[in-house]
């Protein structure tokens, strides 16, 4: 299938066309870029939800339960689940489907696993592109799940309309480490595994953290769930709906849309610049030479970085 066929297929709700389109976008092929260009005008209708949190808080189970709740509300659901690639082999084991068994047979759900692939700035490119494809395919809700382990992952989760941060009662350290960015990234806070001891304490800790945050127009609710038993998801869905309504009604809605557009462009551009610059520096042997100089302490790393960027800049201005 070529790009026009795939575009028509995605828009008609053809699942195989959607699956193959995602593969193209993920691999950043020429066809993939044509797909995004052709389909972007048809995006913006879906409610996009980012779900993030540390490893082991039950994100996959939570996402499955949230998807089931959305289905009960009569909405179709696209899911993109990102798992880390091994830094050693570049391979990955993507196991999110294990928690989403019952959704596999549901024609109103489409679930795709992605490996982060660890390439420079690449995750945001791939994941937001895949969310756009699902949006264009007509899903009412698109959920993007990432491990909130690194800057890249957190950034991706926040490129959605509503970001949900999942923690657990055992997540004290976790909350500590996230508190710096907590207020900024999440509009809905969830204490999952609320059936184990300490859930109320965790809620109180989160509330205390929120209390010292600066003034804001949206008050992030703190909700308890036991996703394994489908408990508490009704309230989470209601909170997401309220936030979506808030986004639309907000006096800053236009501003926020522009801020999101800017952060997407910048993230994509940063990835492109990095990859192109490094490809050039490698191909020309510039990087290798600088590596030698720094390794032998004939030049410091910062000066080497300057030299590399200068070389790239000279090359790019010549190309014009």
């Amino acid at each position: 299938m070529d790009a026009p066929e795939l575009i028509a297929g995605v828009r008609a709700g053809d699942r195989r066309a959607l699956a193959r389109s995602i593969t193209h976008v993920e691999a950043d092929t020429a066809t993939g870029r044509q797909l995004l260009a052709g389909l972007y005008a048809h995006t913006g209708r879906a409610t996009t939800i980012g779900v993030t949190g540390s490893a082991g808080v039950g994100k996959s189970t939570f996402v499955a339960a949230l998807a089931r709740e959305q289905r009960r509300r009569g909405r179709t659901v696209g899911i993109v689940a990102v798992d880390p690639s091994s830094p050693f082999s570049n391979g990955a084991i993507l196991g999110d489907r294990i928690r989403m068994q019952d959704l596999t047979g549901d024609g109103g759900v489409f679930m795709r696993s992605m490996a982060s692939r660890g390439n420079l700035g690449g995750l945001s490119e791939m994941a937001t592109g895949v969310v756009d494809l699902m949006d264009a395919a007509g899903f009412d809700v698109v959920i993007l799940e990432t491990v909130g382990a690194g800057q890249d992952e957190v950034e991706v989760a926040t490129a959605t309309g509503t970001t949900v941060l999942v923690t657990t009662p055992a997540g004290g350290d976790d909350i500590q480490s996230m508190k710096a960015g907590l207020m900024e990234i999440a509009q809905v806070l969830v204490v999952n595994k609320a059936d184990i001891a300490g859930a109320d304490t965790a809620v109180m800790q989160l509330r205390a953290l929120l209390a010292i945050a600066s003034e804001r127009t949206w008050e992030p609710p703190i909700l308890k769930t036991t996703a394994r038993e489908d408990k508490g998801l009704d309230e989470v869905s209601a909170a997401i709906d309220r936030h979506q309504a808030h986004l639309k009604a907000s006096a800053h809605a236009d501003e926020e849309r522009r801020a999101l557009a800017q952060s997407q462009i910048v993230a994509l551009a940063r990835g492109l610049v990095q990859r192109r610059a490094l490809a050039f520096a490698r191909a020309e042997g510039i990087l290798g030479q600088l590596v030698e100089e720094v390794a032998e302490r004939r030049r410091d790393p910062r000066a080497a970085a300057d030299a590399l960027v200068d070389a790239v800049q000279r090359n790019w201005s010549r190309a014009d």
Partner: peptide, 24 residues
């Protein structure tokens, strides 16, 4: 270096085919 989608035990033929389709 491969990306492995592991779906767990007790899969029906429909589930396997549907997962293969969605995951391409």
């Amino acid at each position: 270096g491969m990306e492995v989608i592991y779906t767990g035990i007790r899969q029906t033929p429909q589930m396997i085919a549907e997962a293969a389709l969605q995951e391409d």
